[in-house]
C-alpha cells in the first residue's frame, strides 16, 4: 500500500494532535481542581433544597421558577419538606446569599460560565457605574 502525499498528511496530523493536546500539556503537573470556598449565609443553615440538589440543579430550578411565576402566575414554591418560598431570584435567593461576588461568581468563574441573569436582575450588592 502506498500513501499518497504521505509527508503532508502526517505533518498535518501531527500539527492537529499537537494543537488538540496542548491544553492537557499546559495543565500537566498543576494542582487538581479544588472546589472554591463560598461565603455561606450566616443566619440560615438550610437552602430551599438539599445542598447536592442545589449544587447540580440550581439552574434548572431557576428556569422552572421563572416559568412558573411568570407564565403560570404561581408564586409560591413548596419544597420537599413542606416549607414555602416565594419564587424570586432577587427576593428569595439573594436575600440569604447577600453577596454575588462571594457566592455565585466563585464557581461560575471557575467553570467559565457567564449566565446572563445579572444583565437584568440586580445583585444584592447593588449596581455600580
Amino acid at each position: 500500500m502506498k500513501l499518497y502525499n504521505g509527508g503532508k498528511i502526517i505533518t498535518g496530523l501531527v500539527i492537529f494532535l499537537g494543537v488538540f493536546l496542548a491544553p492537557f500539556a499546559y495543565n500537566m503537573g498543576k494542582a487538581a481542581y479544588s472546589q472554591p470556598k463560598l461565603k455561606m449565609p450566616e443566619n440560615e443553615k438550610e437552602c430551599i433544597e438539599s445542598k447536592e440538589f442545589m449544587r447540580t440543579k440550581h439552574m434548572q430550578l431557576l428556569n422552572d421558577w421563572r416559568d412558573w411565576s411568570l407564565r403560570d402566575g404561581k408564586w409560591v414554591y413548596v419544597n420537599s419538606k413542606g416549607k414555602e418560598f416565594e419564587m424570586s431570584l432577587q427576593k428569595t435567593c439573594m436575600k440569604c446569599h447577600t453577596n454575588k461576588a462571594e457566592f455565585c461568581d466563585k464557581c461560575h468563574n471557575d467553570a467559565a460560565v457567564t449566565p446572563y441573569c445579572w444583565d437584568c436582575h440586580i445583585q444584592p450588592e447593588g449596581l455600580k457605574k
Binding site: E49, S50, F53, K57, Q60, L61, D64, D67, W68, D72, G73, K74, W75, V76, Y77, V78, N79, S80, K81, E86, M87
Partner: peptide, 19 residues
C-alpha cells in the same frame, strides 16, 4: 410540559396567599 421537571421530589407550587 414543565410539570415539576427538576425540582426535588415532593415539591409543589401554589398561588401566593395574598394574591
Amino acid at each position: 410540559g414543565s410539570a415539576l421537571a427538576v425540582s426535588g421530589a415532593g415539591s409543589s407550587i401554589k398561588d401566593s396567599a395574598t394574591a
